[in-house]
Amino acid sequence: MYSLRYKSNKLLYKMRLYEVRRGDYGRCMSLSLKIASASFAVSIVVLLIKYAAYLLTGSVALYSDALESVINVVTAAVAIVAIRIAALPPDKEHPYGHHKAEYLSAVVVGAMIVAAALAIMHEAYLAYLAPKALDAPLLGLAVSSIATAFNAAWSAVLVRQGRKHRSAALVADGKHLLADVVTSLGVVVGVVLVVLTGIHVLDAAIAALVALHVLWSGWEVIRDSASSLMDEAVPADEFATIRAVIAQNTGAALEAHDVRTRHAGKVTFIEFHLVVPSSMTVEAAHDICDRLEAALKKAVAGAVVNIHVEPEYKAKHAGASVASAVS
């Protein structure tokens, strides 16, 4: 009777804990989705402003800046879709969840950035072949500067919130906007030089430099996302925290070894082998695992813990203290 009541109470506790965590995760995803939706609206406004600046001046450099903003709109839309997919619960086909959808979206964003860079390079080449004087350059620059200010403020929000909520899609979107800010500033300086020197071919040269910068930005987004898709381990400082938490909560266990970690969106998967004395009961070993799991989930946001219990003869650090036997 005691055993049955113990298991029943334990099951109820885990169900309540799961509901609380699921609620926290849902609120986190809801906030990420709201930020992504706001990013989509901001990107449309910025695109319209930049295109207006191009129409006022006829500058191919300002046109390249506006063309990159088209990609901003698309990437914001991709981020919304990715965050929605990542929020889906595990199912039969995806038992570990859909967390990596955001990394896939970041790769798509990177590919789009590269495509934008090639399009800008094409426009720069055409402008180099047939350079022309700019119309109303000062008014165009003033209009473009408004868009740049919007992007600078919003990119900071996206990167900060994306890192806070561990959203790869928001971080990728924010980094792309930051690259857009840098290129916009370069365009402004370049157009001013065209006005001051009267060398119209500089407009095309500036557009080409913008294309190279955008190309590098796209490559960085693809590289970072690909690393996460390859199940990259947590950073060294976070891994040190995980090892410390395990060492402090092993109780009567002898050691923990083969500690492995990987990221998947907002989730951090942690798994390791726990060696216990041969005389320890299954219930006692299970209690240690529960304590370790709770401590790791408290220390690492979004942790999913998998512990494999082993008998004493499986120890790899026989005679060592528990603190030094976590590997």
Rank of each mutant, 00 (worst) to 15 (best):
Arg5Trp: 09
Ser8Lys: 01
Val191Glu: 07
Glu238Ala: 09
Gln248Arg: 11
Val46Gly: 03
Phe239Arg: 14
Leu229Lys: 11
Glu102Thr: 03
Leu202Trp: 03
Ser3Gln: 07
Cys28Tyr: 05
Glu102Asp: 09
Ala87Gln: 12
Glu220Arg: 13
Gly23Cys: 04
Ala136Glu: 10
Tyr128Met: 09
Ile83Arg: 09
Gln248Ala: 15
Glu19Gln: 10
Lys298Gly: 02
Ala130Met: 06
Ala295Glu: 11
Val309Cys: 09
Val282Leu: 13
Gly218Ile: 08
Glu312Asn: 05
Lys100Asp: 14
Thr241Lys: 14
Val109Ala: 15
Ser39Leu: 05
Ile49Ala: 07
Glu93Trp: 06
Gly190Met: 00
Phe272Ala: 10
Arg22Asn: 15
Ala119Gln: 09
His273Cys: 07
Ala86His: 03
Glu238Trp: 02
Val74Glu: 12
Glu271Ile: 00
Ser32Arg: 06
Ile49Phe: 08
Leu202Val: 00
Ala179Gly: 15
Leu141His: 02
Gly140Ile: 00
Phe150Leu: 13
Arg16Thr: 11
Ala38Asp: 10
Gln161Asp: 11
Val159Ile: 14
Val276Tyr: 05
Ala53Met: 00
Arg243Ser: 05
Leu296Ala: 05
Phe239Lys: 13
Val309Pro: 02
His273Glu: 07
Ser225Pro: 00
Val157Asp: 10
His263Pro: 01
Ala101Ser: 15
Arg84Phe: 13
Pro311Ile: 03
Ala247Met: 11
Lys298Leu: 11
Tyr63Trp: 08
Ile199Thr: 12
Met121Pro: 00
Leu138Gly: 00
Lys314Phe: 06
Glu238Cys: 03
His308Asp: 14
Arg163Phe: 07
Ser217Tyr: 02
Asp24Arg: 12
Val188Cys: 03
Ala133Cys: 05
Thr57Tyr: 07
Arg16Met: 14
Ser59His: 10
Thr241Gln: 11
Ala207Phe: 02
Ala323Gln: 14
Val305Asp: 04
Lys14Thr: 07
Pro89Gly: 06
Val275Arg: 03
Arg166Gln: 06
Ile71Leu: 11
Ala208Tyr: 09
Ala116Cys: 07
Asp173Cys: 00
Met280Val: 04
Phe239Glu: 06
Leu196Pro: 08
Lys175Ile: 01
Ser184Pro: 07
Ile120Lys: 02
Thr197Lys: 09
Val234Gly: 02
Gly140Gln: 00
Asp287Phe: 05
Asp173Gln: 01
Tyr125Arg: 10
Ala133Ile: 04
Ala130Pro: 05
Ser321Thr: 13
Met112Asn: 08
His286Leu: 04
Ala299Val: 05
Ala87Arg: 08
Gly190His: 03
Gln161His: 06
Ser155Arg: 09
Thr148Phe: 09
Ser37Ala: 14
Val305His: 09
Ser324Asn: 03
His98Met: 12
Gly58Glu: 03
Ala119Leu: 13
Glu93Arg: 11
